[in-house]
Design a protein around this nucleic acid. Sequence first.
DNA 1: ATGAAAGCGCTAACAC
DNA 2: GTGTTAGCGCTTTCAT
Lengths: 341, 341
Amino acid sequence: MSQPAARPVATIKDVARSAGVSVSTVSYVLTGKRSISPETAARVRQTMVELDYRPHAGARALANAKTNVLALVVPLRPEQYIPVVMEFVAAVATQARVHDQDVLLVTDAEGIEGLERVAASALVDGLIVMDVTEEDPRIRALRRLRQPSVLIGLPRNPSGLSCVDLDFEAAGHLAIAELAELGHTTIGLLGPPHAVIERRTSFATRLHRGVRAEAESRGVKVISHACDQTFAGLQSWVETTLANAPEMTALIVHNEPLLGFLPAILAERGLSVPRDMSVVALCPDDLAVQHSVSYSNIRLPADELGRAAVEMVLRQMAGATTTETRLLAPSLTKRRSTSAH
Amino acid sequence: MSQPAARPVATIKDVARSAGVSVSTVSYVLTGKRSISPETAARVRQTMVELDYRPHAGARALANAKTNVLALVVPLRPEQYIPVVMEFVAAVATQARVHDQDVLLVTDAEGIEGLERVAASALVDGLIVMDVTEEDPRIRALRRLRQPSVLIGLPRNPSGLSCVDLDFEAAGHLAIAELAELGHTTIGLLGPPHAVIERRTSFATRLHRGVRAEAESRGVKVISHACDQTFAGLQSWVETTLANAPEMTALIVHNEPLLGFLPAILAERGLSVPRDMSVVALCPDDLAVQHSVSYSNIRLPADELGRAAVEMVLRQMAGATTTETRLLAPSLTKRRSTSAH
DNA sequence: ATGAAAGCGCTAACAC
DNA sequence: GTGTTAGCGCTTTCAT
């Protein structure tokens, strides 16, 4: 029941001695930074395997001034739809390993101090920050760090930092355009919970902006007010909205949990999707297809965004001197939740 | 747009020089491992603040032979209900910080090699492994590591490793007992997706065992077969199950997404919860209350489990020589989804 | 109560 | 093509 008998950990010295070479030779076999005769290299590698040698990460970090670890700062707020957060996490973690990086998880509960801690103590070489708001107070702190960082999201003034996100403003245009083309002239917008909006999470604002602009240019009426993220909340939202605007025939839904409740709630009122109500969802593809209605959706490409974020920090870590803001173009997939009016 | 002007990072040497003391004094101020005169200590601390000094994590790891980092091995499979996974992650990350530990995220996609990598390279001091199966191949590897590990889950033979989990077998007993007391004699069991069962994820088996034992002792009939984790999947499950067993009046649901679909699907057949069908859910509390029916549930205490896992690893890291298996007793909360038959 | 210095395991500049 | 060695920034023993 106790710890396994601790065979001593092999160090680079052990490998060197056992292979009959110097430590620098072993090191160079590892890094490939100078040429080693094939025989020597083979012998060293063989010895490494025999001794089950693994370079000590701390020693490496000290000598190299780099850790091969990226910090991922994640939101833990329940109102942020968790599966989507997790998709980002998975994408970042997976892509990081492709580049031989590990991921240190930092929760946003730690705030600015958390960022500074992992950066200043040289735990990580770069940071990826999720759930960025328009005037995110962390941005100033990030600018001051020695390590580069990438924001998933788009603050009002990203200068000095790289950002990547879906182009939510374009997504707003696209959603309205699609529904308007289908003949809908009064469209409801079911956005994220009020708490998200209040924090001025950047995507909410941008989506609204796109929706309003496109609606205006097409003479379409948009109805949008906050909705509780529960069955009962959506029920009352639908009730009051239809009471005030019975002519509403389409919805844009950027709120994953509500997608599940919507068909049943409409059914209670004798309405069905897409016959009486067209719906464009803004969500990951897998979520779009698992409900009673297969939703036409604008894809939220968490995997691509996560991958891009990793690529972008790595580029900065490699010495890129310019920052970039990358907004992925939205794409809409028509499924069973939209039809002509 | 380029990197901020790199003021040099202050090291312990800088602090020592600037405060007019030796490096060891600075170190001891930091660690508190020997007494320092109040004046000296104050001066050193003051200097640290002025220079914005932070100990270099890598150097510390090298000198101390410990990193203050825990590995958290997470499942990334989509069939594992993601919000629940994330609750564990949040609990572990939060509790780790309470003990001044950081969390390195390892995905199960890396398999055994991932565990060995982070352990052997001394990136972490301990490991917490989620989503453990009955005969998990990682267990052998974990036993061989120098670092202690804690499993969230319960393998068939946990000897040499600490485990923590909900007592799913007791949960099975409890769920059946509750429904049987209410007069239900034919009860359906909606478990996790087939993929989870096939992998012999340990909780699925244990829940079944408890359910069967309690049902047998009470002469209750249990119906259980696999169900697809989609609206259509549950629809056909309900259809075929009720065709074969129209006398079924209760369900135990251990499958979070299905909870959302269930009321609507039953309604299609003119059935309502709890009038025609009582439901006991096995899920986190917050999920139980967000649907059209507020579900009576056995709590899945992800936060407690995560916290316990951290505490247990730390205890081992502190030198505990015994391993423990901790099974949390299930507790059932009655809400609106159960009634007498 | 404090300092000097060895050593943790690795890299890379400087030898040859 | 390979060896020697001075660091990297910290902790801790040994001195005083």
